[in-house]
Amino acid sequence: MSNLIRVLITDDHSIVREGLTLILETADDIVVVGEAADGAEALKLVAEQQPDVVLMDLRMPGMDGLTAIEHLQRDHPQVAVVILTTYNEDNLMLRGLRAGAKGFLLKDTPRTTLLETIQAAAKGESLLSADVMGRLMANMQAEKKLPTPLNNTPLTERELQTLRAVAAGNTNKGVAVHLGISERTVKAHLTSVYNKLGVDSRAAAIAVAAQQDLL
């Protein structure tokens, strides 16, 4: 039981919650510990159920997803948040990543991608589809103002290689195999990247790097 990934689903549409629950119940390593209809209910259930991953809709009545993510990042930073998004919510998606979400999913994503993304999020990783990555980069390039890293130290070539491999959807193990280095070294490179870009997650690092044309 200790190896099960505990998931909380937050969406204001009951049919979406029920559909996700049915899909997740088919996975041997995932258990749905609760469903919330808005951000406030999600925060209450997180405190009670201590999930590993929260699937978070952004547009909800009452407390919206962005506000809930900010609260979770402050009060429950160990909980990985994965944004549930639709094709017309790119700006909200980016704001959610900057608020602390670890990744994002389209609501019509295939079952395999849904399960793999949750499994990756539970391990502190992100799996980004080429489609979503393309939208992310396009939105970043459309913005005029670029964020400024917390320090002026540029990323090393190895750090860039690591970040690009992560942006391509590789797990830490996949990056290690691709670059011929250990997983521990991959984690060290990512930690350095986070510090230099002023972020604290893979998804946010990719977002900032895309905006700065590093990918």
Rank of each mutant, 00 (worst) to 15 (best):
L146Y: 05
I9H: 02
G96Y: 04
A204Q: 08
D64I: 00
L155M: 08
V53T: 09
H178A: 12
V186H: 12
I15Y: 14
L163D: 10
N170W: 08
Q49A: 13
L72M: 04
R59L: 14
L114A: 03
I30K: 10
L179G: 02
D12R: 06
T185Q: 13
T148S: 06
R59F: 12
R59S: 15
S182R: 08
K196N: 11
L24P: 12
G124E: 11
K145N: 08
T109C: 15
L160K: 05
I83V: 03
T109K: 02
A130M: 08
V177A: 15
L72E: 08
A122L: 08
Q49R: 15
K123H: 14
G19F: 11
E157V: 02
V33H: 05
D75L: 03
T156K: 15
S201R: 00
Q211W: 06
E25N: 14
L55S: 06
Y87D: 07
Q141R: 03
D52F: 10
L106A: 11
L114D: 09
D11A: 03
E41L: 10
R95K: 14
R17E: 06
E25Q: 14
T148M: 04
T112V: 10
D11M: 01
N172A: 14
H71Q: 01
V46M: 04
S201Q: 04
Q73P: 03
R135T: 01
M140P: 05
Y194E: 11
L190R: 11
L97I: 04
V186E: 13
A68G: 06
